[in-house]
Amino acid sequence: MEIAENAALVVVDVQKGFDEAGFWGPRNNPGADDNIAALVDVWQATGRPVVFVRHDSPKPQSPLRPEYEGNDLKEYVQERRGKGTGLELFVTKTVNSAFLGTPDLGAWLAENGISQFVLAGIQTNMCVETTARMGGNLGYDVLVAYDATYTFDLEGPFGWRRSADEVAQASAVSLHGGGFARVVTTKEIVDATA
């Protein structure tokens, strides 16, 4: 695997509100935050561009709604903002895809000649997956650091309920098997940046 010198790391919705277990329910991958932090550190140390994304939920009861503390980025992410030597962008959005936020992520990537990006963040099957799918559709080389993402148990139609692990695995299979993105591990990505 090759990670381009100007590959962007897109850190999706790593916000305090996702720690409210009473709202979201059981989650998977307890090591995700450490892996997200490791990726940001590597990107900043190598001068690569980092994009921080925040979800501003329009739903009044959401822990991610603006002007509620859950909307804030988690401390370890906030502390790293502005610390790298490479380009940095902060995007806010109200929908699942970081490509539909402000400022325009696609325009920024194009402006800076970036054709490859790595995704990490929350939730695997929601905003990470949607951003990966759009990126793949738009022709970007997209990598998803699977173990630097997490999600929650979910109920769908017909009373079907899936655990967070099952939901995350289904998302990874759809992305990778469908050719939208390559789903890899944090270690594989870190090793490829050396």
Rank of each mutant, 00 (worst) to 15 (best):
G25A: 10
R54C: 08
N28P: 08
N35L: 04
D41C: 03
R48L: 01
L64M: 11
H55L: 14
P63G: 08
R48G: 01
P26H: 14
P49C: 08
T46P: 03
K59M: 11
L39P: 00
R48W: 02
R48V: 00
Q61G: 04
V50S: 04
F23V: 15
W24D: 03
D56E: 14
K59S: 10
L64S: 09
P58A: 15
I36G: 04
N29M: 06
N35T: 03
R54S: 15
Q44I: 07
Q44W: 03
W24M: 11
G31D: 14
V51Y: 02
R54H: 13
N29T: 11
E67A: 11
E67Y: 10
F52P: 04
V53Y: 11
S62T: 13
S62M: 12
V42H: 00
S57G: 06
L39V: 02
V51A: 03
A32V: 06
Q61V: 07
P63F: 07
A38K: 08
G22S: 12
A38F: 04
A32D: 02
S57E: 08
T46E: 06
P60R: 07
W43G: 00
G25M: 05
F23D: 09
G31T: 09
S62Y: 12
P30Q: 05
W24A: 10
A37W: 03
V51W: 02
G22Y: 08
A21M: 15
P63E: 07
W24I: 09
F52L: 10
S62F: 10
A45D: 08
D33H: 10
V40D: 02
V53A: 12
W24P: 03
Y68H: 14
I36H: 05
V42P: 00
E67F: 10
A37S: 13
V51G: 03
D56R: 13
K59I: 05
D33E: 14
R54F: 05
H55E: 13
R27H: 13
P66H: 04
H55N: 15
Y68Q: 12
G25T: 10
G31C: 03
A21V: 15
Y68L: 10
T46D: 06
D56N: 13
G25H: 06
Q44T: 09
G25Y: 06
D41I: 01
Y68S: 11
D34W: 04
S57D: 13
P26R: 14
Q44H: 11
L39T: 01
N29V: 09
R27E: 15
W24F: 15
A37T: 09
N35F: 03
A21K: 15
S57Y: 06
H55D: 12
Q61L: 06
N29P: 05
L39I: 01
A45F: 01
V40M: 12
A32W: 01
V42L: 01
G22D: 10
L64N: 09
S57A: 14
S57P: 07
G47P: 04
Y68P: 00
P63Y: 04
P60S: 11
G31K: 03
F52K: 05
A38R: 10
T46Y: 03
L39K: 01
D56I: 04
W43K: 00
D33Y: 12
D41V: 01
F52V: 09
S57W: 08
R48N: 02
D33R: 08
A21E: 15
V42M: 01
A45W: 00
W43P: 00
W43F: 14
L39N: 01
